[in-house]
Design a protein around this nucleic acid. Structure first.
Lengths: 236, 236
DNA sequence: ACAAAAGTGTTGAGAGTACACCCATGC
DNA sequence: GCATGGGTGTACTCTCAACACTTTTGT
């Protein structure tokens, strides 16, 4: 809804309004590792601690736009270069000691080749951290990050979202590596490839990548592939 | 996050705060049909139209508590008698013509036998509507409802959430009926039952229910059954 | 005996899994 | 030739889905 249905007349000023922010958990695989972008806080509270990037939602801005804006501020990637999805809204009353802050969390996937070494001046206060080796985080950001990671792994299982973390052209080995990195488990090469063939989510492109042995064919993601797989039903 | 990391000093009053509400899509199966609870608006805008119940989040109240409060106000069911899950946060700038309102939508499942005929005085302004025969809805509530229904169907496929819509004791036929009503499709009796046996999510209780033919055994949901099934991975 | 609904079993097709094998390149 | 990594095929198991069948009650 929008107005309290029980109120006879509407008067928004009667109610004390919380602050609303958007936080964006940004994932990438820069060097064989699943990493998240964090920024160092410069003010109380949690001064000096690392936090998920975020900021206030402007009064005339959609939540999604706010998330894209945060994303662009920290990574300079455009809307087309990124996968963005709303994650969950965290609104415990005292998650921020200053005032009531409700945050709408998003998670984003950016291909490593889209990441500039961060041109911004405050590079010292921005860092990529392995999800397996995180610093202490401000606020309830550890919860948010854990939730984001669970969702990422889950989504990977039934959608083709993983391609967002790879360059446009990639080898099947690189794709499999990405999956193994995110899931934290080894996959069988033959089965991985046969499933790719069956689902037709990738197609060959010209060119090969030199490796230690036989050169690897390059592939790209087929945009038209409806790569959302139905979950297996608990009941028939 | 919670404070804008880019701001040197924090001053919440600098920003115009949106209103934050919670809307709850309440599902039940009162008479062989999947229905949602709606309430009739009594004030501008959308006066006289039906809307999803909701209200402001109090400044010291968690989002979940606000949702439970709304639920109790409309149905008098307690926290234990209901399944509640956060759905999505809708925040388009002009979804409410009066002012900026961001709403955190929840969806709830209530067993039909927990529903009193609604003791409240304003019973005329509250109604259960089949999801296949909805009136025009206020605000963006049609979107919210559609999203909720999609989520419900999806969740049904890989979790045991459907039991929340049945009384404590039920026959397997009743369970299958509930699934068929929600999914809008016929299921195979034999396969439905064999899967139930395998997953062990239900157990027999004493007693039978009289039907037209052979009496049906009563069952109940096994609380300890971890009835969350892994989705089939797109990739091995 | 017959209808009605509960409840079980069978069978073939397809998906998942483990593993072995062949292919192309550099040295 | 041989090491290295790319790429394919096979065989076993398990799940899915359709369907037939048996059981227990009321009339």
């Amino acid at each position: 809804m929008s107005a309290p249905e029980t109120a006879e007349t509407y008067d928004a000023s009667k109610y004390e309004h919380p602050s609303v922010t958007v936080d964006v958990v940004i994932f990438s695989i820069p060097d064989e590792q699943l990493k998240v972008l964090l920024i160092k806080r410069k003010a109380w509270p949690y001064e000096g601690m690392w936090a998920i990037p975020g900021g206030f939602v402007k009064i005339d801005e959609s939540l999604e736009d706010a998330a894209y804006r945060e994303l662009a501020e920290e990574t300079s990637v455009t809307q087309e270069q990124v996968y963005l999805e709303q994650l969950y809204t965290f609104g415990q009353p005292h998650r921020d000691p200053r005032t009531r802050v409700i945050t709408v969390a998003y998670f984003a996937l950016v291909a490593a080749d889209k990441l500039h070494p961060h041109a911004a001046a405050n590079a010292q206060d921005v860092g990529w951290f392995s999800v397996y080796d995180l610093p202490a985080l401000a606020f309830d950001h550890a919860d948010i990050l854990e939730y984001a990671l669970t969702r990422l792994r889950y989504k990977l299982e039934y959608s083709a979202v993983g391609f967002q973390l790879l360059p446009e052209k990639f080898t099947l080995r690189e794709l499999q590596d990405a999956y193994e990195i995110i899931l934290g488990a080894k996959l069988d090469k033959g089965n991985f490839r046969s499933k790719l063939r069956k689902t037709q989510v990738v197609e060959k492109v010209d060119g090969y990548r030199d490796t230690g042995g036989r050169p690897a064919r390059l592939y790209r993601f087929r945009e038209d592939a409806v790569a959302e797989i139905k979950a297996r039903r608990l009941f028939p």
